[in-house]
Design a protein around this nucleic acid. Sequence first.
DNA 1: TGGGTGACCATAG
DNA 2: ACTATGGCCACCC
Length: 120
Amino acid sequence: MTGPIKISEQHRDFFAMVFEVVKQIPEGRVTSYGAIARYLGMGRSSRMVGWAMNASHSQPEFVPAHRVVNRNGVLTGKHHFASPTAMQALLEEEGIKVVEDQIQNFETYLWDPAKELALD
DNA sequence: TGGGTGACCATAG
DNA sequence: ACTATGGCCACCC
């Protein structure tokens, strides 16, 4: 990994925090909005994570938004991509199989930042 | 000023 | 197993 996030430093900018976490999702892995919210200490405000992702497309740096799905492994955000199939295509490029907007073997690919990223 | 909405989630019945 | 509801909190009329 590229290194843990220093919450205290990023704490002012919610967007930046979310993007930093998303950017650290390894290729071929996925996580959920709620997992990110919990990792950032936002409790149940998982909707805010989704809201933040809305702005991910206009980020100067690449944000792998396609690696963020809901807690069931469903591609709920696919409609916000360039095309309806773009999100699925990106995931399948990374070896993740998607059927009917549902990631197969979701638990296998799940990457929980709270578990995988050590807090400093 | 205030109500509706959302790329969500957990709980209750 | 499935629906309903509340919470979350910033944004947009």
